[in-house]
């Protein structure tokens, strides 16, 4: 049984439809990537899974239907989210931001905090700094850390490499891989940086204008000439 299974998902902003009949699934411990250009609907998809956008269709997590549930119920069900704009609490310290993430997983707070500091030693060094004064890379770490504090089994990450230096991208990609291999997390990443997605994910979905237009393993997708040209900057 897939860990997360999405069927016929449609998302709406008022009357405007941003996703149509989207199918997608990921099994436990798998890393999948969704690639798409600006406005393709990547953030809408992740927001929709979290119950932050009006949707129809089905989002099953561990067999339970989550569509129509509140975000807090989704978090309690084991979905952690590191959104595109981070949505950190700017005038709280790094540590306090992480502690907010522990809101629903209080019994795990100590182990989760240790895990986060082990994965991101920089956050341990700067735990008293307000996030308003942090760099983009550091904020990305706090955002991932806060999501991990919810004790997720599925982690949604929206464009983790946006605006980051290549070295930091590598760090982030390494950490996402460790989360999947060492901790068994299912990781769902969206990306415009298709090469980053190729290097990280086992399977990739291509999202265009709110629809999945193709999907497959990295190998399968790079063999498709048209796709390779428009997303991966190569031609076979």
């Amino acid at each position: 049984m897939p860990d997360i299974e999405i069927k016929k998902l449609c998302a709406f902003y008022g009357k405007a439809q941003a996703l149509s009949d989207l199918d997608l699934s990921a099994s436990e411990g798998e890393i999948i990537a969704i690639i798409g250009a600006n406005g393709a609907g990547k953030s809408t998809l992740l927001d929709g899974i979290m119950g932050l956008v009006t949707c129809t269709g089905s989002v099953r997590v561990g067999g339970d239907e989550m569509l129509g549930k509140s975000s807090s119920a989704t978090v309690a069900k084991g979905i952690g989210y590191a959104p595109e704009r981070f949505n950190l609490f700017p005038y709280m310290s790094v540590k306090a931001n992480l502690m907010v993430g522990a809101h629903t997983a209080r019994e795990d707070v100590q182990t989760n905090l240790e895990t986060v500091y082990r994965l991101f030693p920089r956050l341990a060094e700067r735990k008293n700094q307000e996030t308003a004064t942090q760099s983009g890379g550091e904020r990305q770490m706090v955002s991932l850390g806060r999501a991990l504090m919810t004790s997720p089994s599925i982690l949604l990450v929206d464009e983790p490499t946006i605006g980051l230096a290549p070295k930091v991208c590598l760090e982030i990609s390494e950490i996402l891989r460790r989360l999947s291999t060492e901790m068994g997390l299912t990781v769902v990443v969206t990306e415009q940086n298709a090469n980053f997605a190729l290097s990280l994910a086992e399977r990739i979905y291509v999202l265009e204008g709110g629809k999945i237009t193709s999907s497959g393993t990295a190998d399968e997708l790079t063999k498709d000439d048209a796709l390779a040209q428009s997303y991966f900057g190569t031609k076979h």
Partner: peptide, 26 residues
């Protein structure tokens, strides 16, 4: 406000409601 889950949730909602919601706060 600074040391309890509820207090931090209050601060969180005041600073970023979406950030609070995805942290499991209602």
């Amino acid at each position: 406000v600074r040391n309890t889950y509820t207090g931090r949730a209050m601060q969180a909602v005041s600073m970023d409601e979406k950030g609070a919601a995805i942290s499991g706060i209602d």
